[in-house]
């Protein structure tokens, strides 16, 4: 993760007072809090950043460390040790009456210890945050009050055909594999909550929850509206005029439909109970609507043309 300027995150500069930080945090938290921005991933991410910035800057000690080491936080301990050992050796030299040029405290700057790769963590929180405050998952300042961990959001993409049947799927959330059962009939955009699978709670509070949003991809043959399915099927002109049968493939079987004589192009028929399974209602299905597309012959033989003309003259 790139270096995060916590002051910038809170819209402040380095001279900000603790009161300014508190005010800025509250203002931004009210704007981007996940509870006030349901299903808004951007707001959720921003809230985490604001929380992290507040954690670092609202505590004078932590703020001092942040101000001092900035992006070279990884070398903070090394730096401190080197500083101490330099101090000791300087004392030793001065005790021995030597005038070595050596280092002074101000000779050190964080660049002496290399860049250390900066912020390279792949998580939602910068490594600086984790390094200084542990992996508490961005809990805000709440003193010792027990509090539920933050909720996680995840997305699963499945096909319409997958959504037709109850099936199991494994997803990885923050390095943890979670196996879930997806009930038949799940809707596009539907959100399922898995209690306790979110971030760990603060001060012994319960874990947050995991919210999974399902995205159902389009199917080339069927369109879905709630529990009903819609499809098209072609019938030839003669079947449309004289009646007959049409074979339809549903999502799980094949059915034969009786076509009544004189069926018009665009006629819609309903097949009760042949649609999509109703979510969490075993044995209940929506309807399948089939729209007939009458195929007009394009390459007629001379004989056919003759017969059509005859029909025309009769009609």
């Amino acid at each position: 993760m790139a270096f995060i300027d916590y002051y910038k995150t809170l819209g402040l500069d380095k001279s900000a007072t603790q009161d300014d930080i508190k005010k800025a945090y509250r203002k931004l938290a009210r704007k981007y809090h996940p509870d006030l921005n349901p299903n808004d991933k951007d707001a959720n991410k921003l809230f985490q950043q604001i929380n992290e910035a507040n954690e670092a800057l609202s505590d004078p000690e932590k703020r001092k460390k942040y101000d001092e080491y900035g992006e070279h936080w990884k070398n903070a301990d090394q730096f401190e040790q080197a500083k101490q050992s330099q101090q000791q050796s300087r004392n030793a030299y001065s005790g021995a009456g030597q005038q070595g040029g050596g280092f002074t405290g101000s000779d050190f700057n964080s660049d002496d210890f290399g860049t250390g790769g900066g912020f390279t963590g792949g998580g939602d929180y910068s490594d600086f945050f984790e390094s200084l405050f542990g992996n508490a998952g961005g809990q805000s300042n709440r003193g010792s009050r027990k509090f539920k961990g933050h909720d996680y959001q995840a997305e699963i993409n499945i096909s319409l055909r997958d959504a037709y049947n109850t099936h199991k799927q494994t997803l990885s959330v923050n390095g943890k594999n979670i196996r879930i059962t997806i009930p038949a009939g799940i809707a596009d955009g539907q959100i399922i909550k898995l209690p306790g699978q979110g971030a760990p709670g603060a001060n012994g509070g319960p874990n947050g929850d995991l919210y999974i949003t399902f995205n159902i991809s389009d199917d080339p043959h069927f369109k879905r509206l709630k529990d009903d399915l819609y499809t098209h099927t072609e019938i030839d002109l003669y079947t449309a005029v004289l009646g007959g049968e049409a074979a339809i493939t549903t999502l799980d079987s094949k059915v034969k439909l009786k076509v009544t004589p004189g069926t018009q192009n665009g006629t819609k028929v309903r097949l009760k109970g042949k649609g999509f399974p109703v979510y969490k209602k075993d044995g209940e299905f929506g309807n399948l609507f089939v729209t007939y597309t009458v195929k007009i012959p394009t390459e007629l033989t001379e004989k056919q043309k003759e017969l059509f003309n005859e029909l025309k003259n009769i009609g």
């Binding site: 509250r26 938290a29 009210r30 809090h33 509870d35 006030l36 805000s140 709440r142 009050r145 509090f147 539920k148 909550k193 929850d209």
Partner: peptide, 16 residues
């Protein structure tokens, strides 16, 4: 619980 969690967040975190 879920609903209450939300209200606790709003009240204690955001001073609403």
């Amino acid at each position: 619980f879920g609903e209450l969690d939300k209200y606790i967040h709003l009240h204690y975190d955001l001073q609403i």
